[in-house]
Simulated assay, not measured.
Amino acid sequence: MSTTELNHRVYLFTKFEISFNEKYQKYIFKGRWTDQVDKDFLNNEIQELKKLFHIQLKIGLNNHIVIADLLELTGKRIDWLKDNEAYNISFIDKIKLQSKSLDYPPENKISPEDIIKLRDNEDYNYDNDFINSLILNSYKLDDYRDKLNFEKAQLKYCVDLYRVALSEINDYIMRWQMDLPTINIDKVEFTDLIEDKEQSLKCSTNWNKIKLARLFQFLKEENIIFFEPTNTERNGVLFNKFIENNFTYLNTKFGRQHTIENINKEFSEINSPINKEKQFDFYNELIELITKKRDQIKL
């Protein structure tokens, strides 16, 4: 990874991207409809930035200069949000909007009427930050009688999440700026980098893709290994994902290991009636291997 990549990713994160879609009368925040932006979305971005930052600390040069540049990027955006009073709902009206569309329509998971009902329900326990924010702003925006005000309230929630996320990454980099002079970075082990190495490991095989699929088909059908034994469809989906994520196969044409993609294609081929003979041959081969291994055991 180059320093340029890290700087570019932080720049993109600090870029304030808000658009308005005329067709659906809805805001778009960082390439998503506002009702699709949540803490997980921004937390994932933060973790990815931290990972790139950790790589920079480990193998990059001039860390003190890089850190200063990153703090300038994040600090400018934080100051801009503060100067424009982004903590107020009136901030939404100050934003310069672009016209943009997405390839899919918004889901509109909740309506203004839903929010007012929840607000007036004495049994509502206020355990959802998104709903709580919409309830709070309903008082300021005339109970969302104007539907556009409801969209503004959803955008305001996105802005609030973004402000918190931006401050988090800024504070994290700032702590490293203070600690770096007294730390031997070579002795620091970053958990996310260790996990990346572990996740990149795959189990290789000496069988081709279709043969490997036949083996897993046998193991799955006999419930020797499983994920969801009571849900056949979900068990199959998880099985496919497990194989694709953890195994490689021998591509006999090129004589090297290949990653497994779309293993479901091989499973469909196996289950085809015209391939019964090939399946029969595979089981014969498997029996021969097991028999040979059995005969090697001296009782």
Rank of each mutant, 00 (worst) to 15 (best):
I55R: 14
Q56E: 15
K58S: 11
I59P: 00
G60Y: 07
N63M: 02
H64N: 15
D69I: 07
L73G: 01
K76I: 09
R77Y: 00
W80E: 15
W80C: 03
L81N: 06
K82Y: 09
D83M: 06
E85R: 11
Y87N: 11
N88L: 14
I89K: 08
F91W: 08
K94M: 07
K96W: 01
L97K: 10
S99D: 06
K100C: 08
L102H: 08
L102V: 05
N108S: 10
N108G: 00
K109F: 13
K109L: 14
I110D: 07
P112D: 07
P112W: 07
I116F: 05
K117R: 14
K117I: 12
R119I: 00
D120M: 12
D120L: 15
N121W: 08
N121Y: 10
Y126N: 11
D127T: 13
D129S: 15
S133Y: 01
I135E: 03
I135L: 02
L136F: 10
L136Y: 11
N137R: 08
S138I: 04
S138Q: 08
Y139G: 10
L141M: 15
L141H: 02
D142V: 03
Y144A: 02
Y144H: 04
D146I: 12
K147M: 00
K147D: 06
N149L: 07
E151H: 05
E151A: 04
K152W: 06
K152S: 08
K152N: 03
Q154N: 08
Q154W: 04
L155F: 02
L155E: 02
K156H: 13
C158W: 06
V159I: 15
L161K: 05
Y162A: 06
R163T: 10
R163A: 04
V164G: 00
V164K: 15
A165D: 03
S167P: 00
I169K: 03
I169H: 01
N170K: 10
Y172D: 11
M174L: 14
M174V: 00
R175C: 02
Q177I: 00
L180K: 09
L180A: 06
L180D: 09
T182D: 13
I183K: 11
I183G: 06
I183H: 06
I185Y: 05
D186R: 11
D186Y: 10
K187Y: 09
V188K: 13
F190P: 04
T191M: 08
D192M: 12
I194C: 01
K197R: 15
E198I: 15
